[in-house]
Design a protein around this nucleic acid. Sequence first.
DNA 1: ACCTGAACACCGTTCAAGT
DNA 2: ACCTGAACACCGTTCAAGT
Lengths: 196, 196
Amino acid sequence: MARRSDHAPEELKRLALESARAIVMEEGLRGLTVRRVAERIGYAPGTLYNLFANLDDLIVQLNAATLDALAVVLVEAARAELAARPERLVEAYFDFVESRPRLWSLLFEHRLPEGEDLPDWYRPKLAALLGLVAEALGPLMPDQTREARQAATVTMWAGLHGISTLAVTSKLTLVAETEPRALGLLLVRRMLGGES
Amino acid sequence: MARRSDHAPEELKRLALESARAIVMEEGLRGLTVRRVAERIGYAPGTLYNLFANLDDLIVQLNAATLDALAVVLVEAARAELAARPERLVEAYFDFVESRPRLWSLLFEHRLPEGEDLPDWYRPKLAALLGLVAEALGPLMPDQTREARQAATVTMWAGLHGISTLAVTSKLTLVAETEPRALGLLLVRRMLGGES
DNA sequence: ACCTGAACACCGTTCAAGT
DNA sequence: ACCTGAACACCGTTCAAGT
């Protein structure tokens, strides 16, 4: 058999990524298999290998879409007036994580095989997110060198990631009596040189 | 056949965990399978189910051993005189991560199946590590309430985790021109209220 | 050009049968 | 009491054969 359906290849890819997203949102990485995605879109498993190099490639593309969605909410938060930005950004970040914990987890739970690197088009997405935060918060660190501002931004970024990861895997709750987002805000304020 | 070897069950468990550790150090989580561990210790796959509930249980026990090893190096670092502790702790932490990146990655890459919780004996290990850091650095935050000190400690802990994770998965290098451990030290100093 | 379905080489886990 | 080996129900991936 062939040409089982009349989906254009781009359409089919979109469908596959959407099915994968649904599976991850329901069951996390453990539930995501090539065969289940194929079944969900009504094609044979082999068909997915016309659309993606392999399962890792599919996951990386799903993660890229998640990063794009995160960028959208952070851009919105960065529109706030300068003084409100730290809080708004932290709120937006944690809202995002808490509204799709498994999708967000996939961003860091998935690792490429030993020796494989993220594709070239992926890294600019990461850099853009960082740049967005740096631009939004940079004015709050006026007396710092560019290098110092960059270091502070990256540290905030990684720190928010760490707090969220531990919170999502419940490795924080039993050890901290403070809400993750309060810790995030504390981190950002201290990194900005605030005394709060 | 039976009683293939004369290993006491505790000895056999130790051997299995050691084989698992070796596999992870060489190939990471992706290379770690029940069948390969069994082969490595010279037993049938089914035997491992006499020693562990399943593969997740084996991994959790391996991770517990990793946490114990981390505790050892942090205790040593915490012996330094008060002013040197932040730097010594950060150095010890990153030395640990960089000397066994895949073993350390396993701590966070592995997730229990949906709805399963870490065993009761695991959480005190986490709490003890946090407590160790809190005790070592608490005196550097004398004018803070107990709650504030705890929040600061947890934030540092999660932040170091975030920096290390992103560094190990090379999601930091292309975006930061600063060494991970320098970012870690920056984080800790700022969280302690330093102006550096 | 695209898709199928079977095949291959793996998995985790269970369990009757052996000692 | 402990271990084996086969079985079961899955995997990711490939590829000849079909349209």
